[in-house]
């Protein structure tokens, strides 16, 4: 029987045994949403193994996929099987997408790596709902770490990555890049900074800029009260230079999270983020339906009408 037509429980059972085809299928169902997706997320949640979740983000062209690719080469050499969710935007006009991130990973990725390309599918809220589900599937299937890679433009893309255990922000040499990263809200979420293409002029200037921002972190809120200071690493991802040090920093950050007790705080925050998204999404739908049902031509002010609809909605 084709995996395609198997019931959800059977798919999950197979995925837990390491059947990659089943994992691939589950991810599709999770992405599609609905009752199957909820059931899968529930089943996977019961099988959670606590994989470390790493978010990698940065401006387009910064070298995120290349860095991720190098990690998929390095980690299997160290005996761990990573899974990657590579997120790219859908075309706002057609809803279609060309997903090309695999190219930078496929030919170097080590044994056991699992790479899945994900499109944002227009409605950004969908991503916030589907990514946690996909991560759960990977975790239950035994992949550790799970790497989420997104372009650091757009609030949801940043939020999704910020909800990881360790968030890596990739910038390139040049003051402009640090400023852009700051504007995009990337600096606040960084646990590790990577200056990629460090062989280019301006790398040390960018490092100085970032150090300066970290020094001012009591103003900007970059530094937490546990005394952790995000390290700034230099890589040339195209040839793998410095990538091992990035992974060492991820492990060091994880160690910090564990010893400082922040790991559970983060996990709780991530759950809250997921629950918030689900509740908000559900409320959004309910609200839309209620608004559709309401007679908007009633001779009330829009303010009063909105209050009335909300009241009714919450009572039901």
């Amino acid at each position: 029987m084709s995996v395609r037509n198997l019931p959800v429980e059977e798919l999950v059972a197979r995925a837990l045994e390491g059947n990659r085809r089943a994992v691939g299928r589950l991810l599709t169902l999770v992405e599609r949403g609905g009752t199957d997706a909820d059931e899968i997320a529930d089943l996977a949640h019961q099988q959670a193994r606590g994989a470390h979740i790493v978010g990698i983000t940065g401006a387009p062209g910064a070298g995120k996929s290349t860095l991720t690719g190098q990690l998929t080469r390095l980690l299997p050499e160290m005996g761990v099987a990573p899974a990657v969710l590579a997120v790219d935007p859908s075309s706002p006009l057609t809803g279609g997408a060309i997903l090309g991130d695999r190219i930078r990973m496929d030919n170097i990725a080590g044994e056991g790596t699992f790479i899945r390309s994900v499109a944002t599918r227009g409605h950004a809220g969908g991503l916030a709902l589907s990514v946690p589900g996909c991560v759960r599937v990977f975790d239950a299937a035994g992949f550790d770490p799970v790497i989420i890679e997104t372009v650091g433009v757009g609030q949801v893309e940043v939020d999704v990555v910020a909800a990881a255990d360790t968030t890596v922000v990739v910038v390139n040499p040049g003051w402009g890049d640090a400023v852009q990263a700051n504007k995009a809200g990337l600096l606040e979420v960084a646990d590790i900074f990577v200056i990629n293409k460090a062989d280019r002029p301006g790398a040390s200037d960018t490092r100085r800029d970032l150090e300066l921002m970290l020094d001012l972190s009591h103003v900007s809120g970059l530094e937490d009260d546990s005394g952790y200071r995000p390290p700034i690493l230099m890589t040339t991802a195209t040839d793998g230079e410095g990538v091992a040090a990035v992974w060492d920093s991820v492990l060091a950050h994880r160690e910090h999270l564990t010893s400082s007790g922040q790991l559970s705080t983060r996990q709780a925050a991530r759950l809250r983020y997921e629950i918030t998204n689900r509740v908000e999404a559900q409320l959004h739908v309910e609200a839309s339906a209620a608004i559709d049902r309401a007679d908007l031509s009633e001779a009330l002010s829009p303010i009063k009408l909105a209050a009335q609809i909300t009241d009714r909605l919450l009572r039901d």
């Binding site: 060309i98 090309g100 991130d101 190219i103 930078r104 030919n107 040839d239």
Partner: peptide, 10 residues
């Protein structure tokens, strides 16, 4: 020298 893989500009 290593090998070259084209980045996906489709």
């Amino acid at each position: 020298f290593g090998t070259y893989v084209e980045q996906a500009i489709v």
